[in-house]
Simulated scan of single mutants.
Amino acid sequence: MNSSTYPAAQHVMVLYTGGTIGMQASAHGLAPASGFEARMREYLASQPELVVPQWRFREMSPLIDSANMSPAYWQQLREAVVDAVDVQGCDSVLILHGTDTLAYSAAAMSFQLLGLHARVVFTGSMLPAGVTDSDAWENLSGALVALGQGLAPGVHLYFHGEQLDPTRCAKVRSFGRHPFKRLERQGGGMKATSLPTELTYRQNKQLAKVGVLPLVPGIGAEQLDGVLNSGIQGLVLECYGSGTGPSDNPEFLAALSRARDNGVVVVAITQCHEGGVELDVYEAGSRLRGAGVLSGGGMTREAAYGKLHGLLGTGLDTAEVRRLVELDLCGELS
């Protein structure tokens, strides 16, 4: 379906988290700054040809450089979105966010807001509003216009005229107007036919502890144990190719088995830019499966990390979390 199939946004809540879009010069370089609502109103008033929905503004606290984004802040964002939709009656939310961790936040919120009928759009900019050649206003106004034309319920990432599925993309450039790209990942699970109540957007989530570990030649059980013994509940294991790892290292496999027995959920994704994990193709992958590692299919790092936070924060038992990891909840495996 194209965007015109969906109703136009009528009431948008703009949540400003900080990030480059509203930064101003300080003694130590660009830093998040208050007062962006007035600048936004002034800009939109200067562009009478732009047709955008009615909007209101909320400045999150604290304002942050997105390099300082955290799962605790994601909980604040979820609560702010729920308040905007369920309490204040907004049908859409626009989140202004720094680009460095924007794809992580948008993917994480896709799982934090399952079942939401409103539209949530993330955008930001590579250069601050007001500086020469900034992309700030074109991204902000473009996102508002897109909402006004109608978007599907759920979470979207908008940048430089493109609408991207946040569970399928990543920031691939540190420069220019096109920092985000859809990754050509393949391999997935069946679509979940229903969601446990604990996963729906109105349910409060606990903070979870999730780690990420890329495999490199020579990695041993001691490095893996160091991560697994740090108190994490879930681990994104970035494997080679279609999901292989050091299968001839019995200590490494034993560490993974201990993790499974201790309730740590380990999900394999591929380090490759394209393709996905199929653990049973090679013996080196099937041995990981035998040690309790789950297939992340074609999930990106951002999606797998956000999904584990979403699932582990529900309080569901480990067996149910493991089942849901390999089911497609919001397009992350499609």
Rank of each mutant, 00 (worst) to 15 (best):
S3W: 02
P7R: 13
Q10R: 15
Q10M: 12
Q10N: 12
M13K: 15
V14P: 02
V14T: 10
L15R: 02
I21R: 05
S26L: 10
A33I: 05
E37P: 02
E37L: 03
P48S: 11
P53R: 00
R56S: 15
R56D: 14
F57M: 06
R58P: 00
M60F: 04
S61F: 12
S61A: 15
D65L: 14
M69R: 01
P71A: 06
A72P: 01
Y73L: 14
R78N: 11
V82H: 00
A84N: 00
Q88H: 15
G89Y: 04
D91Y: 07
L94P: 04
G98D: 04
A103C: 09
L114C: 05
G115V: 10
H117Y: 05
H117K: 14
H117T: 14
L127K: 14
L127W: 05
L127M: 14
P128V: 12
A129G: 07
G130K: 07
D133W: 04
S134Q: 12
W137Q: 15
W137V: 08
E138F: 04
G142N: 02
V145G: 08
A146D: 11
A146P: 02
A152G: 13
A152V: 11
V155P: 07
L157G: 07
G161F: 09
E162W: 00
E162G: 02
T167A: 11
A170C: 11
R177H: 03
R177Y: 06
H178C: 08
P179K: 02
P179A: 09
F180L: 05
L183C: 10
L183V: 09
E184R: 13
G187M: 13
A192T: 05
T193S: 15
L195Q: 11
K209F: 07
V210F: 08
P214R: 01
I219C: 05
G220H: 06
L224F: 12
D225C: 11
D225S: 15
G226V: 09
N229G: 09
G231Q: 03
Q233H: 12
V236F: 05
E238F: 00
C239T: 14
Y240C: 01
T244L: 05
P246I: 10
S247A: 15
N249Y: 03
S257L: 13
R258N: 13
V267N: 03
T270H: 00
E274A: 14
E278H: 05
S286I: 08
R287C: 12
L288R: 10
V293R: 03
G296R: 02
G297F: 04
T300D: 13
T300V: 08
A303M: 08
Y305H: 14
G306T: 04
K307L: 09
K307F: 00
L308T: 06
H309A: 02
G310M: 06
T314N: 09
L316D: 15
A319N: 15
V325I: 10
D328V: 07
L333H: 12
S334E: 14
